[in-house]
Amino acid sequence: MTRTRVLITGASSGLGMGLAHEFASRGATLALCARRTDRLDRLAEDLVASNPQTRVVTRTLDVNDHGAVFTTFNDLSTELGGLDRVVVNAGIGKGEALGTGGFEDNLATLETNLVAGLAQIEAAMAIFREQQEGHLVVMSSVSAFRGLRRAMTTYAASKAGLAMLAEGLRAELVNGRAGDIKVSTIYPGYIQTELNENVDAPFMVDAATGCRALAKAIEKEPDSAVVPAWPWAPIGAAMRHLPLPIVNKLT
């Protein structure tokens, strides 16, 4: 790894935990953040036991506490002597069909996935601008490619908004005026995690396979990547253009 100091939010479960294992196996120094301290502590113990060369520091963080996001990111950067990569991963999957009484769940999804995502991007970019280098990784979703129905409507919108924040940053940084800062938007397909363990979705892959593919894609520092590429890259391309009734069947 060329970028060895990696901060991951939402690291206590799901894709964040899987990425922590993948980057630890590559020799990274990890800064892991999540709300559930007990899980973070167990994860840190497991990572060091499996990868003795790996240093792991943890912080309790609710990304909806925006001030704490900035403080935590800055503290971790100071402790590690800088940050090479920040993975904006924390998110939730609540949601109800619009107009059916699920406003609070839909609001929570927007606040956690998009507004708190903005706070994490701002905090990371402030550090990278000062360093004149860094790699920002924004975890979106293939659901961001189209408006989706029912419980997925607000989730898809939140992930689409997150992707647009990242794209706007790339447009700003294209001439390298802020230094060697890269921004990658990652669009995971359906990867089995706690978030979707009760979802019967097509083309689902297991967490180990999905997180291995995610780490490999992130290491390449692309502008954007759909992961796993098969079958989600062609499905994602099709989703952008197919009529909504067909999109409904794919998702």
Rank of each mutant, 00 (worst) to 15 (best):
G189M: 05
A213T: 01
A229Y: 11
T154S: 15
L173D: 08
V137Y: 04
A208H: 03
M204F: 06
A229P: 08
E197R: 15
A163V: 03
Y187T: 02
A215I: 01
K159Q: 10
D223Q: 15
S184A: 04
F203C: 13
T154L: 10
N198K: 10
A213R: 11
P231C: 01
S140W: 08
D223C: 11
V142D: 07
R212Y: 03
L165A: 02
G147M: 07
S141C: 05
A225I: 01
P222G: 09
M164C: 03
E194D: 15
S158Y: 08
D223E: 15
A215E: 07
A229E: 13
P202E: 12
A178Y: 14
G168W: 07
S143T: 15
L173M: 11
A156Q: 05
E167F: 03
L148S: 02
P202Y: 13
I186L: 10
Y155E: 01
V137K: 00
S184G: 06
N196M: 08
D180Q: 14
S143L: 07
A201R: 02
K159L: 11
I186G: 04
I218A: 09
L148N: 06
T209A: 13
A163I: 03
P231F: 00
V226M: 13
E197N: 06
R170Q: 08
V174M: 04
V199D: 15
V142Y: 08
V137D: 04
